[in-house]
Write a protein that binds this DNA or RNA. Structure first.
Length: 565
RNA sequence: GCGCCAGUAGCUCAGGUGGAUAGAGCAACAGCCUUCUAAGCUGUGGGUCGGGGGUUCGAUUCCCUCCUGGCGCGCCA
C-alpha cells in the first residue's frame, strides 16, 4: 500500500466516525506549494455543508481520529480555510522508488481499458500531395494518443483512411494530364481546383519515362476538355494517369510516415466502400430508417433530427454521393469491426463535419453510441524560420512538408514540438529552436537529462541491472532536490492516466520537461559517485528510477532516450 | 450573422476536470561557479488570469454577456 492509499483509508474511516455518509471519498492532492506538505485533503471543507459545521472544527476532529503511523506521516496540520496537510518522513516517499525499479518499462501502465478495442484514425491525407505540417501534427498526436491508450490497457489499432475516390482525385489526375501535355510542348493550364505543386511535374516526368509520351493529339484534346471543365475522352489513359498519380503520392506519403516512425495497422481505402457495396448498403439503411427525403433532385438526410444544424445532401443531383456518405459507411465498418471506441484526429477545419457523421450513424439506428466517433481536433500550425513566418500556400504549391522538417531538425524534435502544445492551441513551430543543440531546446534538455543519468552508470562502470532497491536506506534521500524529484517520479502514473483519459499527450511533454529540470537541478547540486556507500546506493536507485521514468515518457511520445549525446 | 477554439508575466506557454499567496522557460537585474557531459547555479523584479456580471465556503477553472484573434458555416473533401 502506498502512503496515498493509507491516507485515504484513514481519512475515510475518520470521516465516517464523525458522522459523514458512508459513501464519502476523501480527495487527496499534491499541494502546489511544498510548504503545504506532501499531501493535502479538503475533506473537512467538503463535509462542512452536509454536517452543518465549520470546516476547521471538522478538521480538528478528523485529525484527532487519524492513525497515521503506518503511512509514514511525520506531521499533520490544519491550514487555511480547513485543509489538512500531511508531511511524510523522508523515507516514506523514497520507498516508492522500489516500485519504479520493479516495473521498469511497464511503470506507468494501467489496465483501465481492460482490453477494449479502440480505433485511432489519423493523418488520413488525400493522396494529392506530400504531407504538410498539419499532417505532421496529426501524425504526432495520433501516434502518441495511441501509445497512451495502449499504456492504459486498450487494444489500439492505428488506421489511415485514404480517399482515392472523388473530385479531388479527379483534379489530381487532370493536373497530371496537363503536366504531361506541357512536357510534350502543349500549351495547357492547370484546371480550377487542380494542383500546382512542383511534385506533379516530377510525377509527369516519371510517367513519361515509364510509359512514353502519349499521342500529341490525344493529349491536346484532353487538355482542351480539361480547360472546359470536362474529362479527357480517352478514359483508359485518364484512368491510367489517375492510378499512377495516386500510387506515386501514396508512395511519397509512406516515405514521410516512415521517416516519422509511424506505423499503421490498417490503410482503409475509400474506393473499397464503393466496390464492397457498403455505400449502397448504408444509403439503403438510411432510407429504410425514414430519415431521408428528396428535394431539388437530390437525396437528403435529415441530420437535424440528430443534432446537426442543417440537413445534408447524400446524393447529388448528378447522381454521385457527397463525401459524407462513404464517411458514414466507413464509420459503420469501424463499429462492425468491433471497435467500441473510435477516435479521429483531425484539423479543426474539419470540425463542421463531426456533427453530421455522428448524426448519420445515429440515423442508422444500429446501436452506435451518441458520441461515436470521438474527435480530437487540433488548431493550425505556423512555421517560423529566422524569426519570420514561412508562408504556406497550398494553391501556389509552396508549403513546408513533414519531410522538410524532419530533414532539418530530426524526428525527435519534430515529434516533441508537435506535442508540446495542447491541440486546442495554435502551434508555432520554431525551426531554429528545434534544431538548436542548447538547453533552450526542450527536447535536447529532456534527452540530456536522460543521457546524464546514464552517464553516471557509464562513468562509474556500474551495470544498472545490478541496482536494486533491496536494503536501501531511504532516509539517505533527504535533500530537497531529491525529495522533489522523487515526488515527481511517483506522480508519473497518475499523470499518464490523466493524459490518456483526456487524450492529451502535451501533458506528458510538459511533465517530462519539468522532471528533466528537477533531474538537472539534482545532478548539479549533489554527486553520486564517490559518496559514502549508503548515499551512493540510494542515489543510484534514484538515478535509475529517474532514467526509467524519462525513458517511459519519451517512449509514449515516440522520442528516443539517448544514453549519451 | 451563427458555431467551434483561443486570450494567463515583456515573449513562448503550463495550470491532473472548483482549492491555499496563479507557475516554468526565455528576456531583464544582482551575485556565485568552472567537478558523473557541453554555461550552469542562486536570488530579485515582473500579473486587474481579455472586460463585466453571476453560481459558493472558495473561480484561471463552471454559467451568462461583451471585446479581440483563428477556423468553419458547399449538391468540395
Amino acid at each position: 500500500m502506498t502512503p496515498e492509499q493509507l491516507l485515504r483509508d484513514e481519512l475515510t474511516k475518520a470521516a465516517i466516525a464523525i458522522g459523514a455518509p458512508a459513501s464519502t471519498v476523501p480527495a487527496l492532492e499534491r499541494p502546489r506549494d511544498p510548504a503545504h506538505g506532501d499531501w493535502a485533503s479538503n475533506l473537512a471543507m467538503t463535509l462542512a455543508k452536509p454536517l452543518g459545521r465549520k470546516p476547521r472544527d471538522i478538521a480538528t476532529e478528523l485529525v484527532a481520529k487519524l492513525d497515521l503511523s503506518a503511512a509514514g506521516v511525520s506531521a499533520t496540520e490544519i491550514a487555511g480555510p480547513g485543509f489538512i496537510n500531511f508531511r511524510l518522513n523522508a523515507g516514506a516517499h523514497a520507498r516508492g522508488l522500489a516500485d519504479i525499479l520493479a516495473h521498469g518499462a511497464a511503470y506507468g501502465r494501467a489496465n483501465t481499458g481492460a482490453g477494449t478495442a479502440v480505433n485511432v484514425e489519423f493523418v488520413s491525407a488525400n493522396p494529392t500531395g506530400p504531407l504538410h505540417v498539419g499532417h505532421g501534427r496529426q501524425a504526432a498526436l495520433g501516434d502518441a494518443i495511441s501509445a497512451l491508450l495502449e499504456g492504459a490497457g486498450y487494444r489500439v489499432s492505428r488506421e489511415f483512411y485514404y480517399n482515392d475516390a472523388g473530385v479531388q482525385i479527379e483534379n489530381l489526375a487532370k493536373s497530371l494530364w496537363v503536366r504531361v501535355a506541357q512536357a510534350a510542348g502543349i500549351d495547357a493550364d492547370i484546371p480550377e481546383g487542380g494542383y500546382h505543386g512542383e511534385y506533379i511535374k516530377e510525377i509527369a516526368e516519371r510517367y513519361v519515362s515509364e510509359f512514353g509520351t502519349p499521342p500529341h493529339s490525344t493529349l491536346l484534346a484532353g487538355a482542351q476538355a480539361i480547360v472546359a471543365g470536362a474529362r479527357p475522352d480517352d478514359a483508359t489513359l485518364f484512368e491510367a494517369m489517375r492510378r499512377f498519380a495516386v500510387a506515386a503520392l501514396r508512395a511519397e506519403q509512406d516515405l514521410d510516415l516512415k521517416a516519422f516512425g509511424v506505423q499503421f495497422a490498417v490503410y482503409y481505402l475509400e474506393s473499397s466502400l464503393y466496390t464492397d457495396g457498403l455505400v449502397e448498403e448504408t444509403v439503403g439503411m438510411l432510407r429504410q430508417g425514414g430519415h431521408t427525403f428528396e428535394d431539388d433532385g437530390a437525396l437528403w438526410l435529415r441530420t437535424t433530427d440528430f443534432g446537426d444544424d442543417k440537413d445534408r445532401v447524400m446524393r447529388k443531383r448528378d447522381g454521385t454521393f457527397t463525401y459524407f456518405v462513404p464517411d458514414v459507411a466507413y464509420h459503420v465498418t469501424k463499429w462492425r469491426r468491433g471497435f467500441t471506441r473510435a477516435i479521429n484526429v483531425q484539423g479543426a477545419d474539419h470540425h463542421g463535419t463531426t456533427a453530421r457523421v455522428r448524426a448519420g450513424l445515429q440515423a442508422l439506428e444500429v446501436g452506435v453510441p451518441k458520441g461515436y466517433p470521438e474527435y480530437v481536433l487540433h488548431q493550425m500550425v505556423t512555421v517560423m524560420r529566422g524569426g519570420e513566418e514561412v508562408k504556406i500556400s497550398k494553391r501556389a504549391g509552396s508549403y513546408v512538408t513533414v519531410r522538410d522538417l524532419i530533414d532539418e531538425v530530426g524526428r525527435d524534435a519534430v515529434r516533441y514540438f508537435f506535442l508540446m502544445r495542447k491541440g486546442d492551441s495554435q502551434l508555432v513551430f520554431d525551426v531554429d529552436l528545434a534544431r538548436s543543440q542548447s538547453e533552450e531546446n526542450p527536447v535536447y534538455y529532456i534527452q540530456m537529462a536522460h543521457a546524464r543519468l546514464s552517464g553516471i552508470f557509464r562513468v562509474g562502470e556500474i551495470d544498472p541491472a545490478t541496482i536494486t532497491a533491496d536494503g536501501v536506506q531511504w532516509e539517505a534521500l533527504a535533500e530537497d532536490a531529491e525529495r522533489e524529484l522523487v515526488k515527481s517520479l511517483l506522480d508519473y502514473p497518475r499523470l499518464v492516466a490523466g493524459a490518456a483519459e483526456a487524450l492529451e499527450p502535451h501533458r506528458v511533454a510538459a511533465y517530462l520537461l519539468e522532471t528533466a529540470r528537477q533531474v538537472h537541478l539534482w545532478y548539479h547540486k549533489h554527486h553520486v559517485l564517490g559518496e559514502p556507500e549508503h548515499i551512493l546506493r540510494a542515489r543510484l536507485v534514484l538515478a535509475k528510477a529517474a532514467r526509467q521514468v524519462l525513458a517511459n515518457g519519451l517512449a509514449l511520445l515516440g522520442i528516443t532516450a539517448p544514453e549519451r549525446m
